[in-house]
């Protein structure tokens, strides 16, 4: 028996429902083996493919490591989780759901801060005044570092947040945040505002391929079939 192609899809919530619906539309219905609780499955009518149900961040990590050949996950997860993502992954097609922007948000009361260059000034002046560095709460440590470095901002410290990041400024856990948002209403409700040039990336769910493992003939054939049908469905 030859090794199967591993396709990883989200294991819960809206993302899973949307993925199942999308693949069905693409003529690749996904079936969970045994009960609906199982974390393994297959693509009906397509042999040599094993479906793994994982969390979105696990999918990104496994694609980066090459343990999963193809997967559905957010662009934000890929850019956060996979070191050197540009060479290890290939973004095949956006799937039209799971939209979210990763943004820099500061307290609305910071009426002097409208753009990243303002934040640079604030960060540089913060330590002399407060005796500590400006702090940024986020789950997106790597994305934040790259974006801030791109804007020449060095004088800050990241506070890793494990949830409810938007509450960090009000509890004093951090001065500002980097987080995902769809409509911005959660940010506004927490007295935060986005910066004019502070949208780091516009994310949605993508079909992503790993460039890491070498594929066998059967795996390559199965991959080509899935990629072609997903591209077609994404375009249509």
């Amino acid at each position: 028996m030859t090794a199967p192609l591993i396709l990883a899809v989200p294991s819960k919530g809206r993302l899973q429902e949307n993925t199942m619906a999308f693949f069905a539309r693409a003529g690749l219905p996904l079936e969970q083996s045994g009960s609906a609780r199982s974390y393994r499955g297959r693509v009906a009518g397509l042999r040599g493919v094993e479906v793994a149900f994982l969390s979105a961040s696990e999918i990104a990590r496994e694609i980066g490591a090459g343990a999963v050949h193809l997967g559905v996950t957010g662009r934000d997860q890929v850019e956060e989780t996979v070191p050197d993502f540009a060479s290890r992954t290939e973004m095949i097609a956006p799937l039209g759901f799971g939209h979210a922007d990763c943004v820099v948000a500061v307290p609305e009361a910071w009426i002097d801060v409208e753009a990243m260059e303002d934040l640079d000034d604030v960060a540089a002046g913060f330590r002399p005044r407060h005796g500590r560095r400006l702090t940024v709460a986020t789950k997106y440590v790597n994305i934040t570092r790259r974006f801030f470095a791109g804007h020449g901002i060095a004088d800050y410290r990241i506070v890793e947040s494990l949830g409810a990041t938007e509450g960090a400024p009000a509890t004093g856990a951090a001065d500002l945040i980097v987080d995902i948002t769809t409509t911005g209403s959660t940010l506004r409700a927490n007295g935060l505002k986005m910066l004019a040039d502070g949208t780091i990336l516009k994310s949605e769910a993508w079909l992503v391929a790993s460039r890491v493992p070498k594929l066998g003939r059967a795996q390559a054939r199965a991959m080509a079939t899935i990629v072609a049908r997903v591209r077609e469905a994404a375009a249509g």
Binding site: P107, E108, A109, W110, V122, F126, H130, P169, A170, T171, G172, D175, N190, G191
Partner: peptide
């Protein structure tokens, strides 16, 4: 004050 930030030690 409106967002409860007046007392948390930031700007």
């Amino acid at each position: 004050a409106a967002h409860g930030l007046a007392t948390v030690g930031g700007r």
